[in-house]
Amino acid sequence: MRKITTPLTKAVRTKLKCGEHVLLTGTIYTARDMVHKRLKELVDRKKRLPLELKNAVIYYCGPTPIRTGGDFGSCGPTTSSRMDSFTPALLQKGLAVMIGKGSRSKDVRDMIKKRRAVYFLAVGGAGAYLAKKIISANTHAYAELGAEAIYKLKVKNFPLIVGIDSRGKDIYEKR
């Protein structure tokens, strides 16, 4: 199985093929519904974003609270399609990698292809298993959003499947 490490540059991304299983090591950021709404508003108003999107990895996840000892009890992916209407704008700003569950819209797929980005699937409902792959977790921005805040995670060998590759090939389309 291929092992990849952040930053996931274009050179790395373009090697990945739809359907391939990979293990990811490095830094990723959680962001879900409310954060996407805020980021899109900032982009529209040409304001500074709370994280550098270029080559960033965004994980659609609202983890359980950080426990004593510093880890999340559980942190699996949430449904990606709810982010679809916000995603193209973020991809345009340099976002290159997304992790979530389920299928994406055609607009998102087209933009992934255009930007040579990649969309990964994580196993939904395996939050306890995936939490064990997290080395450290810190609140990065929007702490007031609780579970919906942006958390900065360091992960090691986080298991993923390539859902949409940089050529726009979609695992849910070929079936």
Partner: peptide, 25 residues
């Protein structure tokens, strides 16, 4: 099969370490 193995293991970890089975509690 691979995914199902992970789901079974997830249940084992959750029970043993008192972690939520899924983060959406």
């Amino acid at each position: 099969k691979r995914i199902l193995i992970m789901l079974v293991e997830n249940a084992v970890i959750a029970k043993k370490e008192r972690r939520a089975i899924c983060q959406d509690t």
